[in-house]
Amino acid sequence: MTKSHIELTINGKKVEALVEPRTLLIHFLREQQNLTGAHIGCDTGHCGACTVDMDDMSVKSCMTFAVQANGASITTIEGVANADGTLSALQEGFRMMHGLQCGFCTPGMILRAHRLLQENPTPTEDEIRHGISGNLCRCTGYVNIVKSIQYAAAKINGTPFQEAAE
């Protein structure tokens, strides 16, 4: 099989590579680009652990061939921190609100939440729950993930966020 030449932007950096057409984007990112933040959880497009941002869309990178990303601009979890290296509002929100436990779904969850907040800066709880429904978490039961995203939205919008008391 002929290898394909692809050019894309990953976390703001131009990348060129030769890939077998069947190479899945997740394997290209993890194994050829050493960006191991996105994970494989289900292999069938249900869990969202492999979610990255591609041309302003949340995409399941284990359901995408690397060749399909030719010309695209991709952001992975490794590219979401603030320019000065501090945690982004979402990363901070997940930590402050205990929105993660084992951390395996977290990169996909944060990337998905990132796009959700780009499209809807003030989501309701229901909109958040539907917005992250392509991402499974086995640890948290989602309550604190919802809060984490609300925390980040408040921080980005400069509005107050009150943590609900236990």
Partner: peptide, 15 residues
């Protein structure tokens, strides 16, 4: 733990 997990810097076996 969250400092590394939120940045995709966890280190799992397949990494």
């Amino acid at each position: 733990e969250d400092i590394r997990f939120t940045q995709g810097k966890g280190s799992y076996v397949d990494d």
